[in-house]
């Protein structure tokens, strides 16, 4: 829900930057409900399986990300599990759209996965930085480490890492300059090309869920979690806003350039950050 809201707000922001008015913020809800209500075409049960697996995986991932220190059960926000559960969502999506048979879809997936290879590495490096500092792979504990005001947030303590993470998350959310997988003008929205009706609806929900937990991870890592769900969401929105702002003014990389960029700039930033931390 929150994710959908974000996307709606994000569209407004993009529009405003581009000097348009944009749709209302609840437009995304309307879209989803409308799509779900439509009769839709399908080719094979694998498409269904893929879509359900994707959403299921992403929901399961979302459940594991602590929101303002709160979790449905005491898993502690295990980072590795989150990363790999998210992967099953992506795999489901990829499988579903592959089964649609449109060559544009696997093309987009191929780009997405190549990009994933790009951003996973700096992101892993960031996680390792924090794991090494806290001695725990639990997001809850990493967030709890930053308790005590603005100055103890990681964004202040590790600004370089934050910049790196911001670039990485930009790629994760497939916003420009890393939106090669969607690239509407080149490959007709890539993975989503063959999806219609409720498949597209599910796809939008997936995207919303993904945005939600990606921002949530960022908040937990850099903004000290949140005292309550309201401030937490506000911080998430802050992260998303940055991403949208960058998105609205950026062009698009070629895929290999994107990967190379992700492997150089953010990784270098993190390594510098690590050196600073460990040598101090």
């Amino acid at each position: 829900m929150v994710g959908l809201l974000f996307i709606g707000l994000g569209r407004i922001i993009t529009a405003r930057v581009q000097r348009r008015i944009g749709p209302p913020f609840y437009q995304q809800f309307i879209d989803v409900i409308k799509l779900l209500a439509r009769e839709s075409i399908w080719h094979h049960w694998i498409m269904t399986l893929g879509s359900i697996m994707a959403l299921g995986g992403l929901i399961a991932t979302m459940v594991h990300v602590p929101v303002a220190g709160w979790l449905p059960y005491d898993s502690g926000g295990p980072i590795f599990l989150i990363l790999y559960l998210a992967t099953i969502g992506y795999l489901g999506m990829a499988m579903g759209v592959s089964a649609s048979g449109n060559p544009n879809a696997p093309l987009g997936i191929g780009r997405a996965l190549s990009l994933m290879l790009g951003y996973e590495i700096p992101f892993a490096a960031i996680l390792i930085l924090f794991i090494s500092l806290t001695g725990s792979s639990s997001l809850t504990e990493i967030a709890a480490m930053q308790a005590g005001g603005f100055l103890s947030w990681n964004i202040v303590k590790f600004p370089l890492a934050f910049i790196a993470a911001e670039i990485t998350v930009q790629a994760m959310m497939a916003e420009k300059p890393f939106d090669q997988m969607i690239a509407p003008s080149e490959i007709a929205s890539g993975p989503l090309v063959e999806l219609g009706g409720k498949f597209l609806g599910l796809g939008m929900i997936q995207m919303a869920v993904a945005i939600y937990f990606e921002t949530a991870i960022m908040v937990n890592l850099f903004f000290g979690g949140g005292a309550n769900i309201f401030t937490f969401t506000l911080k998430q929105f802050g992260v998303y806003t940055i991403a949208i702002l960058i998105n609205s003014v950026m062009p698009r990389y070629k895929i290999e350039n994107a990967v190379r960029y992700l492997w150089t700039v953010p990784l270098a930033l993190i390594i510098i950050q690590m050196l600073i931390v460990f040598l101090r």
């Binding site: 779900l36 009769e39 409720k198 599910l202």
Partner: peptide, 19 residues
């Protein structure tokens, strides 16, 4: 939790319109 997620997703899928 993964299975629950899948169940929710499946519920959304199958409760919505026909294909």
């Amino acid at each position: 939790i993964f299975i629950l997620g899948v169940v929710i997703a499946a519920a959304i899928f199958f409760l919505s319109a026909k294909t």
